[in-house]
Amino acid sequence: MIPLDYFVVLGAVLFCIGIFGVLTRRNVIGVLISIELILNAANINLVAFNRYLGTPDGLGQIFAIFVIAIAAIASVVGLVLIIAIYRNGKSVFLDHFNLMKW
């Protein structure tokens, strides 16, 4: 059996890549993809710990499915927002949108 550490490290690496992407990507679609990475890092941890701890009714796995479903919805909303932003500002680059400034 593959040790738990592998999964945890994989999750941590994915999470860090995701955070890095969210913070540095100019393209809004890139940010959205990075958010998916963060969510999937969490999913890996859920599934791995479920298996490792042997929770009898597969609670972690069910939880992961929920996360995937909600992540799909979140991406839909996100994409809609991106389209709206694009129509408004003719750009999908985040640094073009600083309307929240004083």
Binding site: I19, V22, L23, T24, V31, L94, D95, F97, N98, L99, M100, K101, W102
Partner: peptide, 17 residues
């Protein structure tokens, strides 16, 4: 204090992180 408010979402996210 005003320059802290850049209006860029990613700056806020960074600070949050």
């Amino acid at each position: 204090l005003r320059p802290l408010q850049t209006g860029l979402v990613q700056h806020y996210l960074l600070i949050q992180f």
